[in-house]
Simulated scan of single mutants.
Amino acid sequence: MSDITVALGKKIRSLRQARGWTQEQLAEYADLHVSYIVLLEKGANRATIETLEKLAKASLIWYTPWTMHRMIQYKNKCVS
């Protein structure tokens, strides 16, 4: 597990709890499987751009086109 994956998982958990949502509710709102949410929050799964978009649509996270562009650049840099 990378530091950024663990940090993102903690942030997702924190934001979910701040809204008073269960993991099951977040999974439903974001159209993700609850086991995926569990693994994300533990930092055991890396979130894809698509997952971040689903979390944003569920109103868990906020993003702009610029931040998405930067995440894609970072992802491409890591892959190459």
Rank of each mutant, 00 (worst) to 15 (best):
K57L: 12
R19E: 15
K57R: 13
E53D: 15
Y29D: 05
I61R: 08
V79K: 09
K54R: 14
S35M: 01
M1Q: 07
L52S: 05
S80N: 08
E50T: 06
V6G: 06
K42D: 05
T64K: 03
E24M: 03
Q17I: 10
I4P: 03
K75E: 14
K75L: 14
Q73A: 12
I49E: 04
T22H: 12
K10E: 06
W62K: 15
A58P: 07
Y36P: 03
L39D: 11
L32K: 00
K54T: 00
Y63F: 12
S14R: 13
I37R: 02
L55R: 00
Y63N: 05
R16L: 04
L39N: 14
Q17N: 10
T67Y: 12
L55K: 00
L60D: 06
I12D: 01
L52P: 06
T22K: 13
K54C: 10
S35R: 10
E50A: 15
L55P: 00
R70A: 11
L40D: 08
R16V: 00
Y63D: 04
K10Q: 14
T64F: 06
L39Q: 15
R16Q: 01
L15Y: 11
W66E: 14
A7P: 01
N45P: 05
L52V: 02
L8W: 07
W21K: 02
L52H: 05
H33W: 08
T22G: 12
G9E: 01
L32F: 01
H69N: 11
T5V: 08
C78K: 11
G9D: 02
Q73P: 00
E50N: 04
A56K: 12
